[in-house]
Amino acid sequence: MLIADIDKQYDGGPHIQASLRIPHGASTTILFGPSGAGKTTVLRCIAGLEKLTAGRILFDGHEWTSIPPQKRPIGYLFQEYALFPHLRVRENIGYGVRRKPDVVERIAAKLKVYELLDRRPSELSGGQQQRVALARVLAREPRLLLLDEPLSALDAGTRDHVRSELAHLLRGLGIPAIVVTHDWVDALTLGDQMVVMNAGRVLQTGPPQEVFTRPQHREVAAAAGVETVVAGRVKRRQAGLAILEVGSAQLAAADPGGEDPDFYVCIRGEDVTVEKGRAEQSSARNHLPGIIVDAVAAGILTKVILDVGFELVALVTRQAVADLELKKGAEVFAVFKASAVHLIRRGS
């Protein structure tokens, strides 16, 4: 169990306060928020790379507050991986476990970098660098993993692939991990638990899906940028589309491929329009009948919460609210394109 009550005041700079409780076992906690929120500072304080102004850090009953970083059994993955450029991959992985060549080879095989052992870091692709950096960290058998934006240094093409590999790896390790990210796809894919930060404060804590669907602050909703996140299951696939069962409704989405039928269904409020009566001609694939549960002002838009067999949020203009008389209890259709549905694979 990690108990971290962090209070860090930079001289004439930001003030960061956060409390984390992280249980034993293979759980991944996402530290989520925009840049400048203080996520990396929290990570660096836990690692001992920054001194606390006040507060304390306990790990399994051991006092970590003022011991040096070397004494903490932490695996820290830096944002740009920080591989030693003057050392080959073999020496990088073995850096913290000298005189144990068997450990290096075993961990290299596990992370599929065995063939790269004699290369220099500059000769590796981004994905390979990440695996080497993970191997270097895991060689020491840490009891806590800290990952600072593990995917941000990768290009979009490799990111999806590396993300699912990382999710698989984290689940198999059996140790707690804290992952800093500002990407909601990372959060949903990797996270069991989520801590949302903004401007040096923790805004909300909970399972990622719950945080996204029930943001308690406007900042959380804005940071997430996606109003509807619900669990769904693929029933059938046809012509490049996946038909999913979500709650008691069915909807169509672009087929992401793969065998696994379980997904998070993510829909941005801006992509959903609300209509009265069935629309005659429309290219949109999804026309779901439902009832308005609530309608609340959200800046220049109105946030309309619909029950269409699951809870769906639409962001509509005030003009539309007035024209269509969108009030609580009204019977409407929610309309959105199949391509507006973003599917995120749900780990078992």
């Binding site: 690692a47 070397q70 450029p85 850096y95 913290g96 270097r136 020491r140």
Partner: peptide, 27 residues
């Protein structure tokens, strides 16, 4: 020398003294 490399060495359990000869001087 990239600060991250020095910190990476610390996080791998290597002392300041050893980090000096294994990271800072070679860099």
């Amino acid at each position: 020398v990239d600060r991250k490399l020095i910190e990476a060495s610390w996080m791998l359990g290597v002392s300041n003294f050893e980090t000096f000869f294994r990271v800072i001087v070679p860099q």
